[in-house]
Nucleic acid binder design. Structure first.
Length: 519
RNA sequence: GGCUGGGUAGCUCAGCUGGUGAGAGCGCACGACUCAUAAUCGUGAGGUCGAGGGUUCGAUCCCCUCCCCAGCUACCA
């Protein structure tokens, strides 16, 4: 069985999970579920990035030791993932001893490689760095961020010229190899818009980056002391990025999380770290590279750019409660293209819920199951589904497959679109064949059989293909259709044989909001 | 400022290397049907394909200029 090891960005532990986190995790979870149903041995890695100055500061503000603080945040995130049906296989935390040990190991691996290099080419070297430090931001400012000699964010404070002595990583040495990587593997970074940005960056040439910090200690100690004897803390990205690699050093995960990963799902804002720094680190360590990095877009709220203040406007719990988890997952994935940005609005949510879920899909289930019950006592006839209709369906499924496991990957919204085509086409088919007319004349029994199997088979296809998006609802549909066991085990690359299944009409799958529940 | 990607029906968007009448979904209007969650099916409304110019027998798709939007322009993550 082919492996499919995918990861999401580990979330920075200085706040509660919000809509942006949810989009990425639901997207990755759905991609993972699709692959499970396509016969891959899937490993989905998720986790928390828990080190760094900001986390330490936030913890201090809360008056809690940092470890205790991040423990609490991790609980919040895991509870949210459970709520959203994000079925990860491994949850990594950068504060765990296994991770810290493995990070040190990766760094040492780079030092080991350095031994054979002449000094001017070594990956890690010590260097003094002088920059303008803003006390308000507690960080160094780049020239572009400085306005009239002051930090743009804190114009009342004076910038201090500060010199730090750190470990540096010779990122500049990888410009050529990275260019080669992008040339040899055009799909290493997608979508294309993000790839273009990185190509431009590489064209400019890369600067070395610092790999350790002296100003705080909430992190992994850099494994080697400086020549002056000081031990510094690793720059958070040097601690965070390797999580994908350190995952396999946790007990029980040696095989499941074996490096390299097939896919890193990340947000477009951290493209550079994943498409430049991380590959360079791996090259330095002599490790294989991940097959692909996918940078998804952002979701805004009511047209406004997502921000901490905006985050208050939408409680995830509220969004989930309104129409249920699965409808929330569906809405996000359907309305936010995974290769671009999208917007969240309750108006759209309602439109999509009513139109796609209640009217098109839900009602298709209701009417089909009702007819099988009424005309055939609930037993699906042993006939062949309509060949012409299924030829059209199959064409849709080819598109769907391409959007998760082919040329168009990874675009769950296109999978959804293809399956809605299947549902709409099936509703159309009902209108065209008019089974209620066929039912009136026993002479048309065979024809009616054919129509009913076709409906059942179409619905089973929808249930199987949409299960990754809406696990619970599609399980319910599957059960109503009389499918055995778990819909999540239904293979997407095989035709589902529905002959002989016994349907059971239950409550509407997607009740209208104003309808009494269960009506 | 530089670079990248965009500006197509009320909304969200498809339109590969230029060519018979510019599309889909939603929304809207009208009609049909009754199996179904007042759901479904059909029809329609006719949008200067951002603006101007150019190349061409012919451009939404090629070139130039301009306007507008978004992103990137490196050590917060």
């Amino acid at each position: 069985m082919p492996r499919f090891f995918l990861t999401t960005a580990i979330d920075y532990a200085n706040g509660e999970p919000h809509l942006g986190h949810a989009l990425e995790k639901i997207g990755a979870d759905t991609i993972a579920r699709f692959h499970r149903q396509l016969g891959y041995d899937v490993h989905l890695l998720i986790g928390m990035d828990e080190h760094g100055q900001k986390v330490a500061q936030t913890a201090e503000k809360e008056g809690v030791p940092p470890q205790q603080f991040v423990d609490g945040i991790a609980d919040l995130f895991q509870a949210m993932w459970a709520r959203l049906g994000v079925a990860y296989d491994q949850f990594i935390r950068t504060t765990s001893p296994e991770h810290k040990a493995a990070v040190a190991r990766l760094i040492e691996q780079i030092f080991a490689a350095d031994v054979s290099l002449p000094e001017p080419q070594r990956n890690f070297y010590e260097r003094s760095y002088t920059g303008m430090y803003c006390v308000g931001c507690e960080s160094f400012k780049q020239p572009a961020d400085i306005v009239e000699g002051k930090c743009a964010v804190h114009p009342t404070r004076t910038l201090e010229e500060v010199t730090e002595h750190n470990w540096f990583f010779r990122l500049s040495a990888y410009t050529g190899r990275l260019k080669q990587l992008f040339a040899d593997h055009p799909r290493f970074l997608e979508p294309e818009s993000r790839r273009n940005e990185i190509l431009q960056l590489l064209e400019q040439g890369l600067d070395d980056i610092s790999a350790s910090r002296s100003r705080f200690d909430w992190g992994v100690p850099f494994p080697r002391p400086l020549s002056n004897g000081d031990t510094q803390t690793m720059y958070v990205w040097f601690d965070a990025l390797p999580n994908y690699w350190t995952a396999c050093f946790f007990p029980g995960y040696a095989d499941k999380a074996a490096w390299p990963a097939n896919l890193h799902v990340i947000g477009k804002d951290i493209t550079r770290f994943h498409a430049v720094i991380w590959p360079a680190m791996l090259m330095a360590a002599g490790e294989p590279l991940p097959a692909q990095v996918w940078a998804h877009g952002f979701i805004s709220l009511g047209g406004e750019r997502f921000s901490k203040s905006a985050g208050v406007k939408l409680q995830l719990a509220e969004a989930v409660d309104r129409y249920g988890v699965d409808a929330f997952r569906y809405y996000l994935l359907r309305d936010v293209p995974f290769d671009g940005d999208g917007n969240f609005s309750w108006e759209r949510f309602e439109e999509v819920y009513n139109s796609d879920l209640a009217n098109t899909l839900g009602n298709l289930g209701s009417r089909s199951i009702a007819m099988i019950e009424k005309y055939r006592a609930g037993v699906v006839p042993a006939a062949a589904p309509d060949a012409e209709l299924f030829a059209a369906h199959d064409a849709s499924l080819v598109q769907a497959r391409a959007a998760v496991d082919g040329d168009r990957r990874y675009r769950p919204h296109e999978v959804i679109g293809a399956l809605m085509d299947v549902a709409r086409r099936t509703n159309e088919y009902i209108q065209r064949t008019q089974p209620w007319v066929l039912a009136k004349d026993p002479a048309h029994a065979a024809q009616l059989d054919s129509v009913l199997v076709t409906l059942e088979a179409s619905l089973a296809t929808c249930a199987a293909w949409l299960a990754p998006v809406m696990p619970e609802k599609m399980q319910a549909l599957w059960a109503q259709l009389g499918g055995a066991g778990d819909v999540a085990r239904a293979r997407l690359d095989q035709r589902i044989d529905v002959a002989g299944w016994t349907v059971t009409k239950g409550a509407p799958l997607f009740p209208k909001p104003d309808a009494p529940p269960g009506a």
